[in-house]
Write a protein that binds this DNA or RNA. Structure first.
Lengths: 137, 137
DNA sequence: GTAACTGCAAAATATTTGCATCCTT
DNA sequence: AAGGATGCAAATATTTTGCAGTTAC
């Protein structure tokens, strides 16, 4: 889907900044940090707008935060199912230790686990570290 | 194991700060952030030492970083197997959305997943959000 | 026209670095 | 005694907030 439609569908007003940032996500195969975005935006673009836009996108279910082992926050596009209210985050995030990118493996679903008595599961995410298919050639 | 022994076993010199910080981890059931530690340390304790100590502990395999969905970094004690060189991080991290604590479910191991062709797995972690047994009463 | 979004300035917070001093071994 | 660890000061980086001007609808 195009950025324009995605933004409108989320009930947000269509602005230049939002289009720019969303286009970056659409054209990036890997998860991105705030820092990455900032670097990909036009020279001199305001940092604060990036913060606010990412926050808005997360709230509206356009992007989601990817769990990481270190202290960085990564964001990635949500797939179709996400936008419609509830957030299906049940896929696997893959961190390549060779090229340092983080990707969502949409095709791999998080397996169910049996939790100890008394624990109630709401959402599960998985982070796998390893070598990605591109680096493995 | 006592903090003294753990520190020595890791080949680190035994200092007051390290003992204090490690004791906090030993007596805490949940994962802790840098901020948490700072609050639990004696009034006026130097922030920088906390940074450096946490870093050292991670390097030496005494504690490990817990993956989180937001941008916080949490640390938790490594169990026995961790200290002996290679790091077994293959357990499930449970975030309770009610009491906001993060615990390691040592007894639950991360299930194996089948990755797409070309991907090579090194390490897998899992983050589950839900309600913990304490809150579920 | 109005509400929402942006940019700038600045505050607040978090993290890193350098260096002199102190402590562990 | 020697090397590493700490504390302090300060530099750097990150994130948040307020407000005035601008833009989308």
């Amino acid at each position: 889907m195009q950025s324009d439609q995605l933004i409108k569908k989320a009930g947000l007003s269509l602005t230049e900044s939002r289009k720019l940032i969303l286009d970056i996500f659409i054209s990036s195969p890997a998860a991105l940090s705030h820092h990455d975005i900032e670097n990909l935006m036009p020279e001199g673009f305001d940092r604060v707008t990036v913060y606010r836009t990412l926050q808005t996108f997360v709230q509206k279910g356009i992007i989601h935060q990817v769990p990481t082992t270190d202290n960085t926050t990564l964001y990635a596009l949500c797939k179709e199912e996400c936008q419609s209210g509830h957030h299906h985050d049940n896929h696997v995030h893959f961190i390549c230790t060779s090229c340092q990118t983080t990707n969502c493996l949409e095709e791999v679903t998080v397996p169910l686990v049996r939790l100890p008595k008394g624990f109630e599961l709401k959402k599960a995410a998985m982070v796998i570290e390893g070598i990605c298919d591109t680096c493995n050639n």
